[in-house]
Design a protein around this nucleic acid. Structure first.
Lengths: 345, 345
DNA sequence: GCCACCAGTGCAAACGCTTCCAGTTTTGGG
DNA sequence: CCCAAAACTGGAAGCGTTTGCACTGGTGGC
């Protein structure tokens, strides 16, 4: 085929076959540890491959086999601490398993969402996908997921698919109860939607947990105490100002993420309020920086969740796992110095 | 070829061709906006494609064309704020350009580094790569980069390759000078290597900048004041303790990243030191959380750097750009409440 | 009115691998 | 020893695109 060799073009399977004195079929088998290849032959092929620095072309191999050795990860935002940690955990496992990671944020509307849609190019190029905080509203979405590429869903519980999540209701309840135990009665909540158009049932569950803890303490819900913080520092800051500058400011605030809690801390400082003296603050996540700033929080094992999700995926691809199974994960209350007994005035 | 249709298998280009009444070649051209396709034909093909939910198979297309429409990103750590921001910026642009993003952290030793090595499978599956904080020690590495896949290097200045960086020397100098201007004379520095085995010239440049500012103020260098903080919060905390618990503690500390500065803030609190009363702290980055904690810092436009890197990449791939060109970026001193005039005792 | 040229289209050869099917050689149980 | 079965290997047909080349018919310059 090719006249001159060794210039720019890489060695192909044909070259290896020639060098090892076998057919390309045998090279293909030998290199992928197939059975029915004599040890001596396998060795010879491997030597030849090494000598030629041969690496099978991924695209050709995918085309021929249908497998892409790539798993896709979809998340609404890439810059949140949560997403980052998940990705790091996933990458760790995938690297071990020699799989590639393709990343995508959901693009705009759900109709041309990379995950759904009748024939998404994203799905087409991955063997499986890990869905982080992707919201499933309609039955349609669920069906789409079920009938296509294997998926593991991280962040909420789904019945037909392998999923992985913490008990968000419980977590919010624990946080709120912690505040109640410290004597607080007027407790604000900062949560909300991640981005316009992006929803998830996580905020809903946490809101429910917060409300159920209040209900158990016979405190009636006050809608004015629930503010959207967009899951960002700045959003948390704004929400806190709204809360604290109101007519009946809370003495404690539960935030659905540590990042929003950081914003609350900032707002408190700006307003001259001391934490926890004038205001108790509790977050959710146990962000890497939470300890540094003494933030009380609900710890969830985010990086580990990424690892588990990836392992689940490799298991599914290897045919080793029951696909549709929900994996609950442990959480814990970490009390630090941002929460304290309500001071009597 | 295939007997029954429409069950599970996706529509292929042949199906589209049949439906539109043209050859596959025409379909291929029409769908990719090639010239020499009649408008009427193109329209007919597009309609057929839409009707069949046709999406060209990426692998086949890559194999045939040699282009992968994927760009790879390599970074030493995925969880640092810096990397995250870069990725977000890159993703933003790539999405626009309809390119995929393949992510990899460098695996272990430089010899089986995804970027280098005689025939890396990583390089093989991307059209170009963005290298974030990858260190180039030997000439060999540089050559490898030059002679292969187009690359844009982010984080340091390289001559033979498109690169993008801030003036790290200047940044460190600005930070240190800020501290000097406030009257500090004994100024610690926390920097160091990102991870064992991973080096970059960034810490070196910043160290040099720090030292040159001191030299300009006629302060002689004290090696005991330079500590490695591993670019993490915890590392910063440890380094700060070492510095502050020493025999002659500094009155100010310059950190090479805001994350390390957060650790310093934590250490100060733990040791009962007030910031900026007893200790001034300045970081580097302008981390999203820096403002929330009143951290003075050197701002660099990290997300924007990601965007620019990605645009540079798309330009190169489109043949629009001079490949080897260095793009310097602006930085700024952001003085907040973690730095203050040295208090006389 | 002729001819060179070009827009528009199709044919078929890659692209580099995987894998079905057959063919050949060993192996081992009876 | 014989024969069936197993182990090993090769040939060749795809996998679904892209693209060079060839072909056709129409157009405009002279």
């Amino acid at each position: 085929m090719s006249g001159r060799e060794g210039t720019t073009t890489h060695a192909s399977i044909v070259d290896v076959a020639a060098r090892a004195g076998v057919s390309v079929a045998t090279v293909s088998r030998a290199l992928r540890d197939h059975p029915h290849v004599a040890n001596a032959t396998r060795q010879r092929v491997q030597d030849a491959a090494t000598a030629l620095h041969y690496v099978a072309d991924a695209n050709a191999s995918r085309l021929a086999s249908g497998r892409s050795n790539t798993i896709g990860l979809v998340a609404p935002i890439l810059t949140s601490w949560y997403t980052t940690e998940v990705i790091a955990g996933v990458e760790e496992v995938l690297q071990e398993a020699e799989l590639d990671l393709l990343i995508s944020t959901r693009r705009g509307a759900p109709d041309n969402h990379p995950v759904f849609g009748p024939n998404s190019s994203f799905r087409q190029r991955v063997d499986g996908m890990i869905l982080v905080d992707v919201f499933f509203d309609t039955e349609r979405s669920r069906d789409l997921v079920r009938t296509s590429t294997p998926a593991v869903v991280l962040g909420e519980r789904l019945d037909q698919v392998a999923s992985l999540s913490i008990d968000n209701h419980l977590g919010a309840e624990m946080a709120t109860r912690h505040l109640l135990d410290l004597g607080h009665r007027r407790i604000g909540m900062i949560g909300g939607l991640a981005l316009p158009g992006i929803t998830s049932n996580v905020p809903e569950s946490r809101t429910a947990g917060y409300e159920s803890a209040l209900a158990a303490a016979r405190i009636r819900r006050d809608r004015a105490l629930q503010v959207d913080g967009h899951f960002t520092i700045e959003g948390g800051r704004r929400a806190a100002r709204q809360l604290l500058l109101g007519s009946q400011p809370p003495t404690a605030i539960f935030c659905m993420s540590d990042e929003m809690a950081f914003g609350v801390l900032q707002a408190a400082r700006e307003l001259g309020l001391s934490v926890p003296g004038d205001l108790s603050v509790i977050g959710f996540d146990d962000h890497t920086a939470a300890e540094a700033f003494g933030l009380s929080t609900i710890r969830q094992p985010v990086k580990e969740m990424g690892r588990i999700a990836a392992r689940l995926m490799t298991d599914i691809l290897g045919g080793h796992a029951a696909e549709a199974h929900h994996h609950p994960l442990g959480i814990a209350l970490i009390a630090r110095s941002s929460t304290a007994q309500l001071s009597v005035r």
